[in-house]
């Protein structure tokens, strides 16, 4: 289990102290795939670097299985870091070494005998699906292949935790998906706890079980992905989950109703039912829904006619539907 307690990090700048992280508290259970999402500049990279103390927090504790990393000697910390692997946006492979030697590197550092290390490295190349690239140099590989080698390298030290710092941000969508599958597969097969740092919703939706939303160095929301994404409670959360939503100007006519979907079937023809069953002609003003694990999440803003009676019928119908909540908008929603 990884616990971050009251973690703060400030950097001295010319205009005084800059607070990158402010009293961050997080608990990440073993075996989770935990997403930390935020806009650029939110402090994600600093946060992930505090977990293996590449950045030393200004205050607070980093507990791994109850042991405070901050209290370790440099040598003990290096030992500990071998169990916390990390992969990066820019892969950070050694360009002058072959793929096999890159994967051998962490074992070389740990003093594993060379023959044994090479054997293990070959197995890991199989795991990441690149058995034929042992003697290739990183410059000869595509981005996705480089990240696979980096993942193999990260696994070479038999880690308990895998930190992914924007690991798919330099890759195209198809490659991103395949890398995420690989990470998920590793999590399931080897039981490695994965922490995913990203600014992309899709990445979190794809593989994470839990998520924390980070904004300006603060943790705004935490919970399961379904909870947080279906109904973000904070402004920062809404901005991330519904990035295209702009403040609505008051249209002056009709009534607006916001429907929040909380995991009903995404197949249900809600608006059509409203027209046929209730005779209310609703117009969709805005919709932003996502399907996570086959369930609909998100919000829809619909316009209803002025007629009080029709509004009443529509509201009654909507309120009777499972897995969604309805609230009337007053005009300037945000």
């Amino acid at each position: 289990m990884i616990e971050l307690r009251n973690l703060s990090k400030t950097f001295p700048t010319e205009e005084g102290l800059f607070t990158a992280l402010d009293q961050v508290n997080l608990t990440i259970r073993d075996g989770d795939i935990y997403g930390i999402i935020g806009m650029s500049g939110a402090g994600k990279s600093t946060l992930v670097r505090c977990i293996n103390l590449l950045e030393r927090p200004t205050e607070g504790q980093v507990l791994i299985d109850g042991e405070d990393l901050m209290s370790l000697s440099p040598a003990a910390l290096r030992e500990k870091r071998r169990k916390i692997s990390m992969i990066f946006q820019q892969f950070n492979l050694l360009m002058q070494r072959t793929c096999l030697d890159n994967i051998c590197f962490p074992m070389e550092i740990a003093g594993v005998p060379k023959a044994k290390a090479r054997q293990r490295a070959k197995e890991l190349l199989e795991v990441v699906g690149l058995p034929d690239k042992a003697e290739a140099y990183p410059a000869m590989l595509s981005g996705g292949q480089k990240q696979r080698v980096a993942i193999a390298r990260a696994l070479a030290s038999d880690p308990q935790v895998l930190l992914c710092d924007e690991a798919t941000s330099a890759l195209d969508p198809t490659t991103t998906r395949s890398i995420l599958r690989l990470i998920q597969d590793i999590n399931r097969r080897l039981g490695i706890t994965v922490i995913v740092i990203t600014h992309e919703m899709a990445v979190v939706e794809e593989i994470c079980s839990h998520v924390a939303i980070l904004d300006h160095g603060h943790v705004m929301e935490t919970g399961t992905v379904e909870e947080v994404f279906s109904n973000p409670k904070t402004e920062a959360g809404r901005k991330l989950v519904y990035p295209d939503e702009t403040p609505q100007e008051a249209s002056g006519q009709g009534r607006m109703v916001r429907i929040v979907f909380k995991g009903g079937s995404s197949q249900q023809p809600l608006i059509a039912s409203l027209a046929i069953d209730c005779g209310v002609k609703a117009s969709i003003l805005r919709a932003n829904t996502k399907t996570i694990n086959g369930q609909a999440f998100g919000t829809m803003l619909i316009g209803l006619p002025e007629d009080e009676e029709q509004v009443g019928r529509a509201m009654a119908y909507l309120n009777s539907q499972p897995n969604l909540t309805v609230e009337e908008e007053t005009g300037n929603a945000e």
Partner: peptide
């Protein structure tokens, strides 16, 4: 690239190892 050095640090390399091996 400083990222490569950071990667080595994240793997638990000592400063001497980073100099000689990276």
């Amino acid at each position: 690239d400083s990222g490569v050095i950071e990667a080595a640090q994240s793997m638990g390399c000592s400063p001497f190892q980073i100099i000689t091996k990276v």
